[in-house]
């Protein structure tokens, strides 16, 4: 009898990935606490929204990256695919296409790049690292070649709507003729991130494709012998990652209201770091969207808070590097138990 009660008690304690997510969440709260203490401007509504806005791009990339990492792969091409998607959308707008379909085509471009990744990995049997490294250079090369490395600007006000607009924004015209912002509103990129994260988590947890993604990462041969279409599952994951990179490209370029073909360099590393901090294992089979979102916000808050505290960009890189290694180390300790 004492044995069973003890066991029941242990059930209440979070285990494994839940524990990791909890510790990541605590880290995030701790960071927010520290930065709020050191910089009074950090804990304002406006800065909160800025963090949301800045994190949404990394967050969108991290959703796709998490799916790929759970399959046991990696996608190094997302930063370049983001740029290429923006370039395609920008060029289509310049060619006279309205903004909405041009942006859809941008996302489709990302999806096609992801599909190519998936096909190269499954049909040509090239490891994900090499295949997506190749795609990283190819996509960046196409983006630079198409634009001559020059930014595309004057894309019209509508192009900036997605990245700069906000829901429930309340602006009041004052007597002196200047507008006064009563409530800055919830930025569209943040809403988009929440929608995509919920969709991603739903697909991973509640749908067959998610179950198959986990099984492929856990034991590819077992998945194949169990009748899982491993190739199709992998292709699906890389295509999703590419399409999300395209979407992130739309958000980023829209925020800048300019298409920059050399935007998004090294973003893949932030996305990978977010996934890993959130508990995804590069060995495959483990990971969650909620964890990766916490990871993305840890990186976002860290960047923002260090900026507010006046830390140089170089020191920021060092700190984020240490955080990534620390997160993986904690994961190792967890797995050894």
């Amino acid at each position: 009898m004492p044995d069973t009660t003890k066991k029941q008690k242990l059930r209440f304690l979070p285990t494994g990935s839940a524990l990791h997510r909890l510790s990541a969440l605590l880290t995030l709260l701790l960071l927010i606490g520290v930065f709020a203490f050191t910089s009074p401007a950090f804990l304002s509504v406006n800065n909160g929204l800025t963090v949301l806005l800045q994190t949404s791009v990394i967050g969108l990339l991290a959703i796709g990256m998490t799916m790929v990492i759970i399959t046991g792969g990696i996608d190094l091409s997302v930063g370049s695919v983001l740029a290429l998607s923006g370039v395609i959308a920008g060029l289509l707008i310049k060619a006279g296409l309205p903004v909405a379909p041009a942006m859809v085509m941008g996302v489709v471009t990302g999806g096609v790049c992801g599909l190519m990744n998936g096909l190269i990995i499954t049909k040509m049997r090239i490891t994900p690292f090499v295949a997506t490294l190749g795609m990283m250079m190819i996509a960046r090369g196409i983006a630079l070649q198409l634009t001559g490395a020059a930014p595309i600007s004057r894309l019209g006000e509508a192009f900036g709507w997605l990245g700069n607009g906000a829901l429930f924004r309340l602006v009041e015209m004052q007597d002196n003729g200047f507008p006064r912002v009563i409530f800055p509103g919830i930025p569209y990129p943040a809403i988009l991130l929440v929608i995509m994260a919920i969709l991603g988590a739903y697909l991973l947890q509640r749908r067959q494709i998610g179950r198959h993604i986990f099984s492929v990462g856990s034991n590819e041969e077992a998945a194949r012998l169990s009748g899982v279409n491993v190739d199709r599952t992998n292709i699906w994951a890389y295509t999703a990652s590419g399409a999300l990179a395209g979407l992130a490209g739309m958000v980023l370029m829209s925020r800048l209201v300019t298409v920059q073909p050399n935007e998004g360099v090294m973003y893949e590393l932030d996305a990978i770091a977010a996934s890993v901090i959130g508990g995804a294992s590069l060995m495959g089979g483990v990971g969650s969207i909620s964890g990766s979102m916490i990871g993305a916000f840890i990186i976002g808050v860290l960047r923002n808070g260090l900026n507010m505290a006046g830390t140089s960009a170089f020191i920021q890189q060092i700190i984020i590097g240490i955080v990534v290694i620390g997160a993986v180390y904690i994961d190792q300790i967890r797995n050894r138990k």
Partner: peptide, 27 residues
């Protein structure tokens, strides 16, 4: 080799590749 996916639970392994679904296609 048993061909089990180590990170999934017993039920997920038993139905792997032949998952039971609800009317809406959810697991």
């Amino acid at each position: 080799t048993l061909a089990l996916a180590d990170h999934l639970d017993a039920a997920a392994n038993l139905f792997l590749g032949r998952e039971l679904k609800t009317r809406f296609g959810n697991l």
